[in-house]
Computed example of a mutant assay.
Amino acid sequence: MRVLGLSSGTSHDGIDAALVSFGVTPGGDELRARLLHHATTPYTPALRKAIRTSLPPGKVRLGDVCALDNRLGRAFAGAATAVLDAAGPADLVCSHGQTIFHAATDGTLQLGQPAWIAERTGLPVVADVRVRDVAAGGQGAPLAPVLDLMLLAGKDGRWGAANLGGIANLTVAVPGEATAYDTGPGNALIDAAALLVTGEPYDRGGALAATGTVRTELLDRLLVEPYYARTPPKSTGKELFSAAYLDGAGGYPPADLLATLTELTAVTVAAEIRRHRLDHVLISGGGVHNATLLDRLAKRADGTALVRSEELGLPADAKEAILFALVGWLTWHGLPAAMPAATGALGPRVIGAITPGADPLRLPAPLTRTPQRLTME
Score class of each variant (00 low, 15 high):
D106H: 14
L218C: 07
A244R: 14
A127Q: 06
A153G: 01
H102T: 05
L152E: 04
L123W: 14
I51R: 09
I117A: 06
D29R: 15
L72G: 06
L152V: 10
A75M: 07
H280P: 00
H37F: 13
G251C: 10
P356W: 05
T25W: 00
G248E: 06
A209L: 09
E311V: 07
A301K: 04
V65H: 04
G14I: 13
T105Q: 15
Q98S: 06
P340N: 10
V172H: 01
A77H: 04
D182V: 03
T121V: 09
V129R: 09
L330E: 01
E377I: 05
P253R: 14
Y43Q: 06
N70G: 11
W159H: 13
L164P: 12
G206L: 08
L361I: 02
F101N: 01
A291N: 06
T262G: 13
Y43N: 04
V83F: 11
P232I: 02
D16F: 06
A255L: 04
P201S: 11
S54E: 01
L335E: 13
S284A: 15
V214L: 08
T171R: 00
R277L: 12
I117S: 04
V83I: 10
W159T: 03
D220K: 13
F76K: 02
F241V: 12
E272C: 09
F76S: 03
P45K: 13
A141N: 10
T25K: 12
A325H: 04
V131A: 14
L36T: 01
P56E: 08
G97D: 04
N187E: 05
P89R: 14
G78V: 01
Q98Y: 12
P124H: 08
R277H: 13
A338I: 00
A192S: 14
Y43T: 05
E377Q: 10
A104C: 08
H289A: 14
E377K: 07
G165F: 01
G248F: 02
T236Y: 13
Y43P: 05
T44E: 13
V224Y: 05
G137Y: 14
D203H: 06
I322R: 03
Q110A: 13
A77K: 02
G73K: 12
I190G: 02
L335K: 01
A229K: 15
T211R: 15
Y245W: 12
P371N: 09
I283V: 15
E320T: 04
